[in-house]
């Protein structure tokens, strides 16, 4: 996994609550057995005018000019602003895979669905939680200012607005550590292998039916 330390990038505001994982990456693209290549189908049903299927040449499909990701001014955006409960619905990790493949490094929203939030950290995407009042300011600025960028520093846990104002955010220490260093979670867990073996031995005594 790619580490996330600092990032400054163009911001795109997606002003909708309860954006679900079916919207982020529709089910027909879940048939892939790979982890990559989902970016062109991110928000597929909102982004294109036709029905998308795997294997299509997406560069030849009619795009929806009214969908915000298609506005020329947001081309190359790497920070996504969203509203409440972003990523609700299914557990598909294809959702963060699609965001990452598109080029997003961070999402900023007032709240996320739990599984999606967790999945982001496994894929080098930083999901930042900011309160609704701050979100309103960021949405207003991103919509009114062409080329609006935010600077994110994971170590300092800050988002810096173009005017220099610094906004702090919270992140759990273990998630921060893994993301900041781009660590392999399985490798970390395997460092505790002795504890796992000890637990397993005890569990075998308590619940032998699970081991027979």
């Amino acid at each position: 996994m790619e580490a996330f330390t600092q990032h400054q990038g163009l911001v795109v505001p997606l002003d909708r609550a309860n954006v679900d994982t079916d919207a982020i990456i529709p089910k027909q693209f879940l048939k892939s057995i790979k982890r990559s290549g989902f970016g062109p189908n991110l928000f597929d049903e909102w982004r294109y005018m036709d029905h998308g299927e795997p294997g299509m040449d997406n560069s030849k499909r009619p795009v929806n000019p009214d969908f915000i990701l298609n506005f020329p001014r947001y081309e190359g955006a790497s920070v996504l602003l969203a509203r409440e409960n972003f990523g609700c619905g299914s557990s598909r990790e294809h959702a963060p895979w699609a965001l990452e493949d598109y080029g997003f490094k961070a999402v900023i929203a007032p709240s996320y669905a739990d599984i999606f939030f967790n999945n982001c950290f496994k894929n080098g995407i930083l999901p930042i939680v900011l309160d609704n009042k701050t979100m309103d300011v960021l949405f207003e600025e991103a919509e009114s200012t062409e080329g609006y960028q935010l600077a994110i520093d994971l170590d300092k846990q800050t988002v810096t607005r173009p005017n220099g104002e610094v906004i702090s955010f919270e992140v759990e220490p273990d998630r921060k550590h893994s993301l900041y260093n781009g660590l392999d979670d399985i490798g970390i867990t395997l460092q505790q292998e002795q504890s796992i073996t000890d637990y397993e031995e005890a569990r075998k005594q308590r619940a032998p039916w699970l081991f027979s």
Binding site: S91, I186, I196
Partner: peptide, 19 residues
Amino acid sequence: GVGTSEVEHVLATQCLRQK
């Protein structure tokens, strides 16, 4: 429910890091 990274994590370690 878990994502695919955690499916792999459980296959490899029989554990998950959780809050």
